[in-house]
Design a protein around this nucleic acid. Sequence first.
DNA 1: CGGCGCCTTGAGAGTAATCAACGATAGTGG
DNA 2: CCACTATCGTTGATTACTCTCAAGGCGCCG
Lengths: 263, 263
Amino acid sequence: MSALRSLAIVPSVSRVETADEAGNPLVLRLQRLAALTAADISALEHLSLHPRRYGPRVDLIRDDVVPKDAVVVLEGFACRYQQRGNGRRQIMAYLLPGDLCDVDAAYLGRMDHAVGTLSPCLLVRIPRQALVDLIAHHPNIAHALRLAKLSEEATTREWIANLGCRSALERMAHLFCELMARSEAVGLVQDGSCPLPLTQGDLGDTLGLSNVHVNRTLQEMRRHGWVELRGKSLRLLKPKQVQRVGEFSPNYLQPTSPANVHF
Amino acid sequence: MSALRSLAIVPSVSRVETADEAGNPLVLRLQRLAALTAADISALEHLSLHPRRYGPRVDLIRDDVVPKDAVVVLEGFACRYQQRGNGRRQIMAYLLPGDLCDVDAAYLGRMDHAVGTLSPCLLVRIPRQALVDLIAHHPNIAHALRLAKLSEEATTREWIANLGCRSALERMAHLFCELMARSEAVGLVQDGSCPLPLTQGDLGDTLGLSNVHVNRTLQEMRRHGWVELRGKSLRLLKPKQVQRVGEFSPNYLQPTSPANVHF
DNA sequence: CGGCGCCTTGAGAGTAATCAACGATAGTGG
DNA sequence: CCACTATCGTTGATTACTCTCAAGGCGCCG
C-alpha cells in the first residue's frame, strides 16, 4: 500500500493551486485501491472536466426513477436517503469527495432510494457510455472501482451494526472515525481536522437519533474533550479514545484484493 | 415478468420429487431475474450436485479471513453477522435458499464480517474458478447474478432504514414481510406460511432489540391477530396491515434492468 | 430423569423521544 | 446599514420505549 501511495506524491513546489486545490479526489481515492498509470489518471481527470455546482439539500436522483448516469462528488457531502411515511428521513450512505455513485447505472432499474446533496457540492455527472468505455479501456480503474464498491458495501454493513447495537455516544464516535478516515483518504484532512458540513439534524437522520439527542450527545463528547467542532469541520482531540468507544477499525474502508494479501 | 415466470413452469405430473422437492431454489431465484435457457438451468443444477449438510450456528466463513469460494444456500437460513466487543451480535443479512454469498469472491480480500448458519442448512460451496467459468459462459446467469447482487444491496439499505427510523413493532412487521416475499420467490411459501427457523434471540440480533423485547413485540403482533408462529413457520394473517405497519413495499427485492422497464 | 436451551413474565432502571421555548447566526430585502 | 426571517443550535421538562436483571416454565435430547 505504501508503494501505491508513493506513486501519488507530487512535489508540492511544482504544483499549481488550481480549482481542485488538493488534487482530483477521484484520482486520490482510486489510487489507494489500485496502481494507476498516467493514462488512467488523465482519463479520470478528463471525466471531471465539467463539474457543476449544486446547492445544499438538492435532489440529484429521485426515488423511483431510472438513473441515466453516474455521479462523482468532487467537493461537499451528498447522501443516499429515503424519505419515510412518518415524516422521517433515513440517510443510508454518505457520498464524500472522490466517491462515485451508481457505477453500475447500466444495470440499474428504478431507484429504491434518492440521492441528494447535504452541503453545497461540486459534482460531475458521467453518462453511462463514458463509464462503460472507461472500464473497458482501463483495467486498473475497473479494478479500483470494484474495490470502491466493496468498500461501499462494507460501509453499509458497518452502519447496520452501528444502528443495531450501539448507544448514541458509540454510534457518533464510530461515525466520526469513519468520516475522518474517509476524508484522510482523499486529502481532506488538514491539521487533524476534516470537513463536517452537516447539521445536527442530518447527523440525527444518519444515526437514527432525534436532533435534540444529537445535540446532547455532541455536548457529552465535547465535555469528555474528545472532539472539537468548529466552523464546519471536525477535529478528534483524543482519536484513540474515540475509536475505542466507537469500536472503530478502519479495515472495512480499504478492501484489498486477494493478490495483495501477503501476510 | 410474467413471461419469465411461465418459462419456469414445469408440468408437475412429470416431475419426480427428488432431494430438492420444490425445485432448485437457485434456479427459481435467478429465473425471476433473467430468462434462462435450458443450458443455463442445467449448468446451475450441475453446481448444486454435491451439497453438504451443516448444523445450526456453524461458521461458514470466519471474520478476517480471505474466502476461497462462494456459498449457495439450498435449504435453511444462514446469515452475515458481526460479533461485537460488548458481547452483542449484529446480523447484517439473511441468506435464504437460492441466495448466493460472495459472488465476487475473486475480488474479495479479508472478510470484515463472518458468515454462519442460523438453522440447519444444506449448502454448496462453489470454487472461485467454477464461478468465473459460469459467468463467462452464461451471460443470462451473469446478468441474473448482477441483479441478485443489486437486490442484496437494496435489502441492506432497507435494513438501515428499518433500524434507523422504526419502532420495534414496525421493524418486525417489515422483516416478516420481507421474509415472506423472499420465501415466495423461491417457492417456500405453502398455504400462506413461510419458514422461520430462527430463535427470538436471532430476531433480536437482527432487529437491534433484546430477546425480551422481541418476545413482547411478538405477543403484541399475535394479540392484534396479525401473525401466527407455529413450529418454525410464519403466517401473515393480515398481510395488508402488516405491510402498512412496516411500511413495506417489495420493489427493492426484485430489481429490473432498464431494458425491462417499460412503463 | 436431568440438564440445557428457549420462551415467558415481572419489576425497575435508563436511554432517547417529544414538546416547547429561546438564543444564535446568516442571509435577504428595504 | 439595519431590521427581518429562517434555519440551526441549545436547554428544560416530561413521556415513553426499550433494556437489564431475575426467575420460572416448557420441551427436547442425552
